[in-house]
Simulated scan of single mutants.
Amino acid sequence: MPRRIARSRRAVAGLVLLAALFAVAFGGPLLSRWGWDDTDFAAFRQGPSARHWLGTTQSGRDVLALTLRGTRRSLLIGLSVAVLSTGLAGLVGTVAGFAGGRLDRVLMWATDLLLVLPSFLLVAVLAPQLGGGGLVPLLAALLWMVSARAVRGTTVSLREREYVLAARFLGASPARVIVRHVLPQLASLLVVDASVNVSVAVIAESGLSYLGFGVRPPDVSLGTLVAAGQGAAATCPWPFAAAAAMLVLIVLAVNLLGDGLRDVLDPAAGQGRGDR
């Protein structure tokens, strides 16, 4: 598997870029003299300089430190949401597809019900009640349904395979059959789904924070930085541009990695690309 991933230029480019973003976001503050919550009272709304590499905000805070803080928050939220939503989709989809019958109908009915609920309205109502710590489970609860239906459909076909039927006839418990024989066949689908969900979660968190439903002051994320900097983007572009550029790089890295993993794990989907 590592060799196949190494032959995919998309996967390698996405992985390298994502690793670089993590290194900068988590290692950069160790090399900077400014913390994200520090204020330089001698430098209000100044451009990039040797003292402040990306300039300062109107309140005298270092743009580089704020951007790195926002990047860490967005990356951690994106990864946490992806793990939770993909795990929930895998659990519901495999249980529904393998069990069938009434349990399948109940789980899929609940999934369909959640799909038609207005997500933005739910976020607007629940986010203020849950606070900043509730953003991850809230986003995860809104991103798993489509993936669960895909997992359920694949599981329905897998449960009729000869090796699955043989394990069941030999007395293996449903949980053991799912863990030993079904989930390994779903690994590629779940891995690609998780990579896509990282990008979706980062964009969703940034959008919600931009609108005031996500990360709240005094903490920052890329969405809050974009919102704070857009008003003066014409005359003081560095706070807005730094956060927007970092957001674009995160989404680009995750999408490249997801496309590369899809090509590696599902070669039929990657035919004609010529990038492996």
Rank of each mutant, 00 (worst) to 15 (best):
P2H: 07
R3C: 01
R3G: 10
I5E: 08
R7C: 00
S8A: 06
L17F: 00
A25H: 03
A25M: 10
W34C: 04
A50G: 15
W53I: 09
G55F: 01
T57P: 02
G60S: 08
R61S: 03
L66F: 06
T71C: 08
L76C: 07
G78C: 09
L79S: 09
S80G: 11
L88N: 06
V92N: 05
V106K: 02
T111W: 10
P118Q: 13
S119E: 12
F120T: 11
L121M: 14
V123C: 12
A127D: 00
G132K: 02
G133C: 13
G134M: 09
V136P: 00
V136K: 06
L138S: 04
A141G: 13
A150S: 12
R152H: 09
R152F: 00
R152G: 01
G153V: 08
S157W: 07
R161G: 04
P174Q: 10
A175L: 15
V177L: 07
V182W: 01
L186D: 04
A187L: 15
V191A: 06
V192F: 06
D193C: 05
V202Q: 05
I203W: 00
Y210Q: 01
G212T: 04
G214P: 05
P218E: 13
L222M: 10
A227D: 03
Q230F: 05
F240I: 09
F240L: 14
A241F: 14
A242N: 07
M246H: 07
L249M: 15
I250Q: 08
V251Y: 02
D263A: 09
A268G: 14
